[in-house]
Design a binder for these strands. Structure first.
Length: 867
RNA sequence: GGACGGGUGGCGAAAUUGGCAGACGCGCCAGACUUAGGAUCUGGUUCCGCAAGGAUUAGGGGUUCGAGUCCCCUCCCGUCCA
């Protein structure tokens, strides 16, 4: 029978709330070690908490509770990333202020988070939409602005005249498919100079305890490449290109300009002008994504013009092609078809000359060889390795004034403005006389106006342009009339610095008090989904570095250790398909949309009960029709698939402790794993067994097995083995294994006639980070007062773990053939003698020459015999 | 195409350094208790074989007394980049 989890959980949540059990004191004792453990705060969507949220949140809560018991001063806060598009869309539809729905959703999230028993300091709760929070977001923007790191620029955006909205790049396809028109239109935007920090953002990754894959993604995003800029002469002009391979200059047989390159129109010959103009017009209609994406078939047009290759004076044709982007490098490239994949494809298609200049190792074809080798057909550089040629040619370019070494980054400046209502207003004024003027810090926050219509204007101005009264302001410099900035900040702004505000959330004189910042930073552990691996973490690191330069923070990096939780998928689904006549169709003939791979016929998917399945090879087939393969996989949870698990339902039926424990028991935290309702029942049964160790669940009275006596040797060994294992596993965040260790203890404890209270009390302490409600309840029922959250974490005693006699497997030629029992302290000679006397193993070595005897202390014996 | 991560029973998984593969949980099988069991408890459960034994960590090769773990090749899956 399940234990009364609902009563227990309500009782302890109330106790924690009333006693402010998890309050982190404002006053700092610098002598006490600190631990700052942070969750990626949620966007409070209308759908409420998803089971993915408690996965990371439980992982951090276990750390927080463990470190508290280890004597650390723990900061474990929670808040809401509450600006966001859904609330704005809802506001447009209903005419209600997005604030209303946002704070309703926050209330739901808060209720659900409290229901799960996380040990947050709720007095530090923040929402990025709170006016006091917006005030400091705006303040940070002002620091960025004052340091010259923000500028205005006319940039193309995706504007849909039908929708009257600006779309993100990712949204364009979706709306086009629905029949809405989307065009590229230049609009005035605010841009942050993140590129100035590219080198530091790259270099400081090295010292971080982050997953290597995430660091690599950030490195790729920053995209540092070293090479040279080279000038190609054409008439009186020069075309500058960037190349990472100056060593291949002798193999440059043509050039390519981006369609937007200003020289294109100028150099195109009269015969080619028309074709070039048509090509440019076509390219203008394509998004960056379409141009860089796959672009299997290269397109391009000859301009009719020629440039001079500086190394050999050769005239090479100049082409226009959209695989060269105006945004990257100089918007022009020198093409070396012999040693660049895209240039090779292009040259092959348009029949341009291909000249080898790098000799690959023996047996490798030089056509399209892009790695390092030895220079050939390169004049005086022939025979030199690639790296050396790079150096020498760069030096020669510099000496002759035709180029220079140059480092390039893929990272672009950050388009920081949105044409939306529900975001932080920029604290900026446009004055006719003084230009752009920052709002004085004392006038922050700049609040959003009250409005009824949240749509952009028909000509694409942001919604705030409709707030005619709000727009009027006075220039703080000249006192003349000024107009407020109507763009707002993107959702990223609030999430770039929230970890700092938790440290000092109520401070109205500063973003964070320096002494507190110094004590708490950096964040020791940051847990969240990998979907934020690039942008959020890069933006937050950028702001942090700016704040470091301003002297607001004392660390170069905000997040010392980062862990990405893996996604939780829906339950495993066994799917087979039926055709129109109802006959089964084997899964390998069906694509992911349920259509036949060859005929395109639409099939009806059907779930097959597990009992009707049979394993065959890598997959499953129908038991009574083995030629029909059944697909077995778990899908991402989604409303349309109907496989979403609601945490509320789980808590209601099994309790918060079961949900927490299950999500930690599913598998390694960082791994993708499918949900299993049966698995939830399994851990729930475990918790019931723990409950019954202490409580007779017929009567609700203490279990008659509980005793006051001293524990036996076996009992101490079982307990201390669990303490040791669980402690190490928590340190490594191997929670699934920690839980199995506790299960092993409980399985043993169940069989004991007598269970000393002291023993069970200690066990309850190690269980408490995982299942805090049940642990508190049992702690009390075992005779302790108050909460256990600041009880010292139990230490294990190695002496209890020592066994007098151990079992050692005897291998013959690497195969286990028998087992011997020897004294734990026995030496090699004794153990080998015992192994040679082992009756089970003897038939495998008796009468044969023993060539080698290997003893791995306390692990195994291996006898190597001839033949 | 490239980079990174991964592939272990029917399923989720475990295996700190190269040292008893499959801990723990689910499922399944059997038994006990029971008016009843979708409760609880006990035992069994990688595969083949009556057994002795053999095979087995995606597949193939290598290093080693010994490989899930190290090296090489191939295949498959996931994520990101192109």
């Amino acid at each position: 029978m399940a234990y009364p989890h609902t009563d227990i959980e309500k009782k302890w949540q109330k106790y924690w709330e009333e006693n402010k059990t998890f309050r982190t004191p404002d006053a700092i004792d610098p002598a006490q070690p600190k631990f700052y453990v942070l969750d990626m705060f949620p966007y409070p969507s209308g759908a409420g908490l998803h089971v993915g949220h408690p996965e990371g949140y439980t992982a951090t809560d276990i750390q927080a509770r463990y470190k508290r018991m280890k004597g650390f001063n723990v900061l474990h806060p929670m808040g809401y990333d509450s600006f966001g598009l859904p609330a704005e869309q809802y506001a447009i539809k209903t005419g209600e202020h997005p604030r209303k729905i946002t704070y309703e959703n926050i209330a739901t999230f808060r209720r659900q988070l409290k229901m799960l028993g996380f040990s947050y300091d709720w007095d530090r709760e923040i929402a990025t939409t709170d006016e006091e929070y917006v005030r400091w977001t705006q303040w940070i923007f002002l620091q960025i602005f004052k340091r010259g790191l923000a500028y205005e620029s006319e940039l193309p955006v995706n504007w849909s005249p039908d929708l009257c909205a600006v779309l993100a790049n990712e949204e364009v396809e979706e709306w086009r498919a629905k029949g809405f028109s989307v065009e590229r239109r230049s609009m005035r935007q605010w841009v942050l100079k993140i590129t100035e920090y590219a080198e530091r953002l790259l270099a400081d990754l090295d010292g971080l305890d982050w997953p290597e894959s995430i660091k690599e993604m950030q490195r790729n995003w920053i995209g540092k490449s070293e090479g040279a800029e080279v000038d190609f002469a054409i008439g009186g002009e020069t075309i500058r290109v960037f190349t990472t391979r100056p060593d291949t200059l002798f193999g440059a047989t043509y050039m390519v300009l981006a369609p937007e390159h200003p020289l294109v129109a100028q150099i195109a010959t009269p015969e080619q002008a028309e074709a070039v103009a048509a090509y440019r017009a076509a390219a203008a209609g394509k998004s960056d994504l379409e141009r860089t994406e796959l672009a299997k078939e290269k397109t391009g047009v000859f301009t009719g013009a020629y440039a001079t290759n500086p190394v050999n004076g050769q005239q090479i044709p100049i082409w226009v092609a959209d695989y060269v982007l105006w945004g990257y490098g100089t918007g022009a490239i020198m093409a070396v078809p012999a040693h660049d994949t895209r240039d090779f494809e292009f040259a092959t298609k348009f029949d341009l000359p291909i000249i080898q200049v790098v000799q690959p190792p023996e047996g490798v074809d030089w056509h399209g060889f892009i790695d390092d080798g030895v220079a050939v057909n390169s004049g005086e550089y022939d025979g030199l390795p690639t790296a050396e040629v790079k150096k020498r040619i760069t030096a020669w370019l510099e000496k002759t004034g035709q180029g220079a070494g140059k480092t390039n980054y893929k990272l672009r400046d950050w388009l920081f403005s949105r044409q939306r209502f529900w975001g932080e207003p920029f604290p900026l004024l446009h004055c006719e006389k003084c230009g752009v003027v920052p709002v004085p810090e004392k006038d922050l926050p700049v609040r959003l106006p009250e409005m009824k219509d949240y749509r952009p204007t028909a000509d694409g101005q942001p919604p705030l342009a409709r707030a005619t009264d709000w727009l009027q302001a006075t220039c703080p410099v000249c006192g003349g009339p000024a107009r407020r900035e109507t763009n707002t900040m993107p959702q990223w702004a609030g999430s770039c610095w929230y970890y700092l505000r938790y440290i000092d959330p109520k401070n109205d004189a500063a973003l964070v008090a320096p002494a507190k910042e110094k004590y708490w930073m950096p964040v020791n552990l940051y847990v969240g989904g990998a979907e934020h691996a690039v942008l959020h973490l890069l933006y937050a690191r950028f702001w942090h570095k700016v704040l470091f330069d301003c002297g607001v923070v004392s660390t170069k990096e905000p997040f010392q250790k980062l862990v990405n939780q893996g996604m939780i998928l829906g339950e495993m689904e066994y799917l087979a398909y039926r055709d129109a006549a109802g006959a089964w169709v084997s899964a390998e003939r069906v694509d992911e949309n349920g259509c036949d791979l060859r005929t395109g016929e639409k099939y009806v998917p059907a779930h097959v009960p597990e009992a009707d399945l049979q394993k065959q090879g890598d997959g499953f087939v129908l038991k009574n029709q083995p030629d029909v393969r059944v697909s077995a996989r778990a899908f991402k949870m989604s409303k349309s698939r109907g496989n979403v698990i609601n945490p509320d339902d789980i808590v209601k039926e099994y309790g918060a402790d079961s949900l927490r424990l299950y999500e930690m028991f599913m598998g390694p935290l960082t791994q993708v794993k499918p949900w299993s309702m049966k698995g939830v029942e399994g851990v729930s049964r475990f918790l019931s067994r723990v409950y019954r160790l202490a409580v007779d669940d017929e009567t609700g009275q203490p279990s008659p097995k509980l005793a006051d006596g001293e524990p036996t040797k076996d009992q101490l060994r079982a307990l201390h083995a669990a303490i040791k294992k669980v402690t190490g596993d928590i340190e490594r965040m191997d929670y699934n294994v920690a839980i199995s260790a506790m299960m092993i203890f409980v399985n043993e404890a169940q069989a004991w006639e007598q269970l000393p209270r002291s023993l069970l009390s200690t066990f309850v302490l190690i269980l408490s980070p995982f299942a805090p409600h049940l642990a508190e309840e049992l702690w009390n029922r075992l005779g302790h007062d108050g909460s256990l959250v600041r009880e010292p974490w139990p230490a294990w005693n190695e002496a209890y773990l020592k066994e007098d006699e151990i079992e050692i497997p005897v291998q013959v030629n690497g195969k286990v053939r028998g087992r011997i029992r020897v004294a734990a302290e026995a030496g090699q000679d004794t153990v080998i003698a015992a192994a040679l006397a082992c009756a089970e193993a003897a038939p495998f070595f008796a009468g044969k020459e023993i060539k080698k005897q290997i003893y791995v202390p306390k692990r195994m014996v291996n006898l190597v015999v001839a033949g």
